[in-house]
Nucleic acid binder design. Structure first.
Lengths: 245, 245
DNA sequence: CTTGCACCTCACGCGACGTGAGGTTGTACC
DNA sequence: GGTACAACCTCACGTCGCGTGAGGTGCAAG
């Protein structure tokens, strides 16, 4: 009955751990075999094996080896408190994972809906989504998504195609030096305002977030051809709309 | 207009990254600033900053720096495929996280329901749950949980308290050498069978899993005083019940 | 005596940086 | 010119839980 002591290989086979892992536990003092052969081979006693089972249980709960060592070290710990702390951590990580999945899923859907996109479009899409998540609250994002749903795929694509054209025409007028209060510009400015309103839906929170984003991330606007100079021109045109000549 | 180049500190402040992280990206060749001052200070151009934004976007999606480097390296990758692979990984991790949360939550509930438990009880509870998860299918676990609910806390505690008593009395008879076919043992064996039936609910799958677990994990039984010798005695007593003298 | 297996002890590697140590550069003020 | 002080630089080790060799020893069988 004294042959109950196991060597590493045997223990590894029985627990499914690697030999290296057991060596590691020995190294860091988490599980030191109580006996050794004369030649230095590790001999794990029944008590060692019981301890290992405890270790594996706690490991399955996501505790670090250090935490396990601490927990097994002193027997006076409050089990409930320890588990609840760990549960809290796990819940936070779960929420993060969920968010990540949602992000990826949203992007995948975008990609599936669109034509085969170029790498550049792809990166821009992601960047845009990241920005949106940064500047809009979750509720606002929901509302935006709802409005997109309501508009339908085609309408969205139309608007997305119209923006660059509108920007280009506005730039033309600016470069020609057209007075922003006069006609071709008034029409363009009106359309500009309409498109923005179609996006915000008149929601003041979303309007505010959009404004914040535009101010904080001028590079994004730049990439779409909306440089500060143009924006200032548009601003003047808008002002003229409100104050009719 | 040529003052657009940023030094590390500035870029770090704007992106929320640490200076060390930017150094790291430089080290591994993920983002090498296109310019340096004469004295060796890093200067990030607008193009560098754009690349960094791409990097951060992909990082937010959980890609490793190596994957990001690969993705940004060649422009011919299939965006959808990349994202879908990543999504799959994320979903798997999400499932694991969820399982972990459930495990922790179950243990926390157990701990809250019970009296303040000793560290030893705690570890034993966890170990038991781990074993259960190993040998019973999710559906079986659900059924067991349902039966526990139906029994009520007090009844469960009663049964849990009865087991050690029953085991002790059985051992007594065995050590006295009582014939397992004769009376005090017949009654004990009957009760033994009843308790097991209360646990399995007569479900053959659960009966089988229980048997498998008992065979594969003799140490667990041992700790409850059910050594092989005793089990063999119980087995004989059971057989005598079925074949009435 | 050799073969072969299980065991031993170093010791580096991963991934994405954190955290110093110890030195240089740039800028502002005296 | 000197002297702070912040911002930059380059090593280089630490993290966590082992994987993965390299190079050597112990022990039983042919």
């Amino acid at each position: 009955m004294q042959h109950t002591e196991l060597k590493v290989g045997e223990l590894a086979r029985r627990t499914g751990l690697s030999i290296r892992a057991l060596h590691h536990y020995d190294e860091i003092g988490l599980l030191k075999p109580s006996a050794h052969t004369a030649s230095g081979h590790r001999l794990y006693t029944a008590a060692d094996i019981a301890r290992l089972h405890h270790i594996l249980s706690l490991k399955q709960l996501g505790f670090s080896l250090e935490e396990i060592a601490g927990t097994l070290g002193r027997a006076d710990f409050s089990a409930l408190r320890v588990v609840e702390l760990r549960l809290q951590r796990a819940r936070e990580q779960l929420a993060e994972q969920r968010q990540l999945c949602e992000r990826l899923d949203a992007i995948a859907r975008q990609l599936r809906a669109a034509e085969p996109v170029s790498a550049d479009d792809f990166l821009q899409t992601i960047e845009a989504m990241t920005m949106f998540e940064k500047y809009y609250t979750p509720e606002q994002l929901k509302e935006l998504e709802a409005r997109r749903q309501a508009m339908g795929e085609d309408a969205i694509k139309e608007v997305e195609a119209e923006w660059p054209r509108l920007i280009a025409r506005m730039r033309e007028e600016m470069e020609k030096g057209t007075d922003p209060a006069t006609e071709p510009v008034r029409a363009l400015a009106t359309r500009w305002r309409e498109l923005i309103r179609a996006f915000t839906g008149g929601n003041p929170g979303i309007q505010k977030s959009l404004q914040t984003m535009s101010q904080q991330e001028p590079q994004m606007a730049q990439r779409q051809g909306r440089d500060p100079q143009l924006m200032e021109y548009v601003g003047r045109a808008m002002a003229c709309l409100d104050a009719p000549k």
